Computed example of a mutant assay.
Amino acid sequence: MPLFSVVIPTYNRAALLEETLASVFAQTLTDHEVIVVDDGSTDETLALLARYGERIRVLRQSNAGQGVARNLGIREARGEYVAFLDSDDLWPPWTLATFQQVIREQGAPSVVMGRAHSFQHSREVSDLESGAPRVQRFDDYLASADATFIRTACAVAVRTEALRRVGGFSDKRISAEDYDLLYRLGIEPGFVYVESPVTLGYRQHAASSSRDFDRGYEGTVFLLEQERRGSYPGGAARRRERLAMLLFGLRHVTHWMLEHGRSRQALALYARGLRFHRVLPRWRYLLGFPPWVLATSLRSRR
């Protein structure tokens, strides 16, 4: 059994996937298998993957979205942990070795989250520096609610048994399926955040899913609805921790949408969050956001 199963979902990204795979095969730790799940690509993806032979396991499905593709990879994984990598992102050579060291030194936590560095040109990832891991350890993911680090849900390694226990990813085509997974993993024992070194190069480009405003809106609505239904673990005793993270994310998304001219969606999310903000009020946001929406709308009409 390898320590890591590297799961890479991909859809029509042949132009970027080769560089992503090169970053995996450049890892200093070789105790891993590589699973690429093709989500019904119509470009040259399959021809590219065929060149790797037995170095990778290729799984195919009709186009069903990233969550479904990742779940197929989880079902087929043989490793103790699944490390997720998107097909447009890059790992520096020390990523898996860093995760291995953290797992050994921190008592085999259920979830290890790395730190991401946004880039546009791959040389920016090559310029990153390695080093001994500096980490923050928590009893579980929910216990990290008050931590101030930036949560990079696309830069995680998770115990395979824990992933299967919570049911993997949502099959909805939303941009928050990775955060939904983290909330469902919320009380699995052991969560470690790797402050340094950087373990993921997060590519910024026009086709990045993080720039899809409609999916961002739908994803945030989905997370709030899951909390309303009581779908996340921890019950009433851990509700404040869940809300601290959920509402932080909601505030970030509403600001992001407003900055990009999506004032109606931003205001709709603000309204949806009011019932939750009654539990954890942030008065500066609650009182200041509607006037900011109005001012932004007036400026856009000039």
Rank of each mutant, 00 (worst) to 15 (best):
Q106N: 11
L46Y: 03
G65L: 15
S41V: 08
V36C: 04
S41W: 00
D43T: 05
V111W: 11
E80N: 06
V58Y: 14
G114T: 15
G65P: 01
D86H: 10
L72H: 13
V58S: 10
P92I: 14
D38S: 05
H117G: 03
G40E: 08
R70L: 15
H32A: 10
Q101Y: 04
E44L: 15
R55D: 11
L85G: 07
N63V: 07
G40K: 03
D88T: 04
A77S: 15
R60V: 06
T95K: 04
R57M: 14
F99G: 02
G73Q: 01
L59Y: 12
Q66S: 07
A108F: 13
R104E: 15
V112M: 14
E80Y: 02
L49H: 06
N71V: 03
S62T: 08
A108V: 04
V112Y: 01
A116K: 15
G73R: 00
Y52K: 09
N71M: 05
R55F: 05
R104V: 07
P92K: 14
A108Q: 13
A108T: 07
R55S: 13
N63F: 04
I74S: 02
A83R: 06
D89R: 12
A69F: 00
D89P: 07
P93G: 12
P109N: 11
L90N: 06
D31K: 13
E105Y: 07
A50C: 06
L48P: 07
A116R: 15
R75N: 11
G79L: 12
Y81V: 05
E33F: 09
I35T: 03
S41Q: 12
V37A: 01
G67E: 12
I103M: 11
A47N: 14
D39Q: 05
S41C: 13
Q100W: 10
A83G: 04
F119N: 06
F84N: 04
F99R: 06
H117K: 13
G53N: 11
A64N: 10
L96A: 09
R60G: 04
L72E: 01
F84R: 06
F119M: 12
S87Q: 08
L72Q: 03
R70E: 04
V37S: 01
L96V: 10
G67H: 12
S87H: 02
E33K: 15
R78K: 14
H117N: 06
E105C: 04
P92H: 11
